[in-house]
Computed example of a mutant assay.
Amino acid sequence: MEHPVSISEELQRFVVKDAQPTAYYIPDFISEEEEAYLLQQVYKAPKPKWTQLSGRRLQNWGGLPDSKGMLAEKIPDWLFKYCERISCLGAFGGKTANHVLVNEYKKGEGIMPHEDGPLYHPTVTTISLGSHTFLDFYRPVSYQETEVPQTEESRYLFSLLVRPRSLLILQDDMYKHLLHGIQACDQDIVTDRVMNLSAAEVLPGAMLPRGTRVSLTIRHVPRVIKAKLMFGKK
């Protein structure tokens, strides 16, 4: 299914003006009932669907992205509904999302600063379930000589507070040039370096205890291999 190429007017209302280009944060993108249903479906997945990593576990839906191409698999209806809903906002340049990564972060778990890379259309969209998190953004490591040690702390720029049931969309510099990560901690203290305070309805100084968070990272993989090509069928 093709969708309008441009970002919709509906989405433009949710741009995070104080962040670098471009982030959109939509609180309450889904209802509490949808959140409960999605969590139920995630945890109904068979045990082999889960992959355990250091600091989190995950499920892949739609296939495994690869530089040679993703062998496409059908995304279940309970997820594909949201692939279409987000794609209709124009997030993927007129294309429909075809890959969902489900991450489970238990209290105290996180992920090191990283970039999503060139396997995807340069947009990442995330629906959060169960608990908030802080998504922290960093300058990449510079390989030019510098007198200042390039620690993670020195490269830290700002954060976005991601509430349960929200949708976060990252594009442009936020996708291509900055690294993003999640600190492994039990609670977060809100500072003035959180760029979406008003949308997230919280004030500096607030202390937010974390719980178990499940994220649905919905993306478009441009290079896809059809199953019939893999097996040499005409």
Score class of each variant (00 low, 15 high):
residue 173 D to I: 09
residue 11 L to E: 02
residue 27 P to C: 09
residue 92 F to P: 10
residue 1 M to Q: 09
residue 231 F to Y: 15
residue 106 K to W: 05
residue 88 C to T: 09
residue 114 H to I: 09
residue 210 R to I: 01
residue 56 R to Q: 05
residue 140 P to H: 02
residue 98 N to R: 08
residue 68 K to G: 14
residue 202 V to E: 04
residue 17 K to V: 10
residue 18 D to L: 05
residue 164 P to K: 11
residue 128 S to H: 02
residue 80 F to L: 06
residue 96 T to C: 15
residue 14 F to E: 00
residue 191 T to L: 03
residue 152 E to I: 10
residue 21 P to L: 06
residue 5 V to W: 04
residue 15 V to Q: 13
residue 85 R to H: 07
residue 129 L to D: 01
residue 110 G to I: 02
residue 198 S to F: 11
residue 103 N to R: 07
residue 84 E to T: 12
residue 181 G to T: 03
residue 168 L to K: 07
residue 136 D to Y: 01
residue 133 T to D: 03
residue 82 Y to A: 05
residue 25 Y to K: 03
residue 93 G to Y: 11
residue 102 V to L: 14
residue 5 V to Y: 07
residue 43 Y to S: 08
residue 101 L to T: 11
residue 166 S to T: 13
residue 188 D to F: 06
residue 163 R to F: 01
residue 76 P to E: 14
residue 6 S to R: 09
residue 73 E to W: 02
residue 171 Q to H: 07
residue 4 P to H: 08
residue 195 M to I: 05
residue 114 H to G: 11
residue 145 E to K: 15
residue 183 Q to D: 12
residue 3 H to P: 00
residue 53 L to Y: 14
residue 233 K to W: 15
residue 155 R to G: 11
residue 204 P to C: 09
residue 101 L to Y: 06
residue 206 A to M: 12
residue 171 Q to F: 05
residue 112 M to L: 13
residue 156 Y to K: 12
residue 8 S to N: 08
residue 140 P to W: 02
residue 38 L to M: 06
residue 183 Q to G: 05
residue 165 R to C: 10
residue 224 V to Y: 07
residue 202 V to F: 06
residue 158 F to Q: 05
residue 42 V to F: 11
residue 201 E to G: 07
residue 128 S to N: 05
residue 232 G to R: 08
residue 36 A to L: 12
residue 227 A to Q: 14
residue 20 Q to A: 12
residue 167 L to N: 11
residue 63 G to C: 09
residue 198 S to C: 11
residue 79 L to I: 08
residue 75 I to K: 05
residue 182 I to F: 03
residue 198 S to R: 15
residue 168 L to S: 08
residue 47 K to C: 04
residue 155 R to H: 10
residue 81 K to F: 07
residue 175 Y to L: 06
residue 125 T to M: 04
residue 203 L to G: 10
residue 46 P to L: 05
residue 64 L to D: 08
residue 203 L to K: 15
residue 151 T to H: 01
residue 87 S to M: 10
residue 58 L to H: 05
residue 136 D to P: 00
residue 53 L to K: 15
residue 190 V to Q: 07
residue 71 L to F: 09
residue 223 R to D: 14
residue 98 N to I: 08
residue 221 V to R: 04
residue 181 G to Q: 04
residue 81 K to L: 10
residue 189 I to T: 15
residue 94 G to V: 06
residue 188 D to T: 05
residue 115 E to T: 15
residue 74 K to I: 04
residue 38 L to P: 02
residue 110 G to Q: 03
residue 11 L to Q: 02
residue 190 V to N: 10
residue 23 A to M: 02
residue 144 Q to R: 13
residue 68 K to L: 14
residue 107 K to I: 12
residue 32 E to S: 08
residue 173 D to C: 08
residue 139 R to Y: 09
residue 217 T to M: 11
residue 25 Y to N: 06
residue 100 V to N: 04
residue 102 V to S: 04
residue 82 Y to T: 01
residue 59 Q to K: 12
residue 78 W to H: 03
residue 14 F to P: 00
